[in-house]
């Protein structure tokens, strides 16, 4: 990408480095292997969601529904795994294997995103409104499906995704790494990626160049939905329980990561790696504040300040 976004990323890296040095000076628990894996494991959910959010934001859209979609997909995966589908009146029971349940969760997530994308493109509803509606719809469906109770005790095989290790690295880190790799390749190397940037940069010019705007938009919302579902599966697996109110306000953390990572909310500018750095900064900050025994109330204030400072610095750079 452009020189400018490279500078931004460089700055984020420096900020991250300073942050790490500061915290490790104040707490000897920070710079340990265990804590490192712990932080990475914790942020992998936010990374996966933020990557999807980045794709949407690059097209000059936004997806507020990711937190609810995360809960819905997690609940459905857990529910199908544990109870399958049973309709007593028809004497029907369908059981689900581990992969089948996960696949169903991913499909539900993608469909939620597809639905948002469809309403946005077909009825020209602003993404903010369409996904706000989806936020409520998905949360309501989650409550309906779970009847408001957690679905727990999902078995050791399922727990592997959120808590397991593979080749010495936590499984969620593998998954988020894979998501990053694929989306970086997609945004930087493929035609579709170029179209995503083009639409965010100038939708009119993109349409006149023969790009099917609606297809691309529906695609990015579907991907954002699917990535939210992956997040949902990771969260559910780690807790061994699908919580009906999981993921509340996760969309805000995702947007924060996107913004700190230097992606412009007006679209067309930004990178996946920027967002990943943004998510890591937020994760390290969270972890550091906990290690330093800062009260949760102050943690929120500090996080808000960091977002503001990051955006101010970014703004100043782009005006030079």
């Amino acid at each position: 990408m452009s020189f400018r976004s490279k500078i931004t990323q460089f700055q984020s890296l420096i900020a991250l480095f300073i942050l790490c040095v500061l915290i490790s000076l104040l707490s000897d628990k920070f710079l340990t292997v265990n804590n490192g894996w712990n932080v990475l494991r914790q942020i992998s959910v936010n990374i996966v969601i933020s990557v999807g959010m980045t794709l949407v934001v690059l097209t000059a859209g936004i997806d507020l529904s990711v937190g609810s979609v995360l809960a819905l997909s997690g609940a459905i995966t857990a529910g199908l795994l544990k109870n399958g589908i049973s309709i007593p009146s028809l004497n029907l029971f369908i059981g689900f294997s581990l992969l089948g349940a996960i696949l169903a969760g991913l499909i539900i997530g993608s469909l939620s995103g597809f639905f948002s994308g469809f309403t946005i493109t077909r009825f020209k509803i602003p993404p903010f409104v369409a996904t706000l509606a989806m936020l409520t719809i998905a949360r309501g469906l989650t409550m309906l499906y779970t009847e408001g109770f957690p679905i727990s005790e999902l078995g050791e095989n399922f727990a592997f995704f959120g808590t397991g290790w593979f080749l010495g690295i936590p499984v969620p880190v593998w998954i988020s790494g894979l998501v990053i790799l694929i989306t970086v390749l997609m945004t930087q190397k493929t035609r579709l990626g170029r179209y995503i940037y083009a639409i965010g940069g100038n939708e009119n010019a993109a349409r006149l160049s023969g790009i099917n705007i609606n297809k691309v938009k529906i695609f990015v919302y579907s991907v954002a939905g699917m990535l939210a579902a992956i997040g949902g599966i990771l969260v559910t697996s780690r807790l061994d329980s699908a919580q009906p109110n999981a993921g509340i306000s996760y969309e805000l953390d995702a947007i924060a990561a996107v913004v700190i990572g230097g992606t412009s909310l007006s679209g067309g500018k930004g990178t996946i790696m920027g967002t990943v750095l943004g998510a890591i900064i937020i994760g390290v900050l969270n972890n550091g504040l906990v290690l330093l025994d800062v009260s949760p109330f102050w943690q929120q204030v500090v996080k808000g300040m960091v977002i503001l400072v990051a955006v101010i610095i970014d703004k100043q750079n782009s005006e030079k």
């Binding site: 940037y197 083009a198 940069g201 010019a205 006149l208 067309g268 500018k269």
Partner: peptide, 9 residues
Amino acid sequence: HEGLILGMT
């Protein structure tokens, strides 16, 4: 507005 994407190369 219609011909170019100004922020692209």
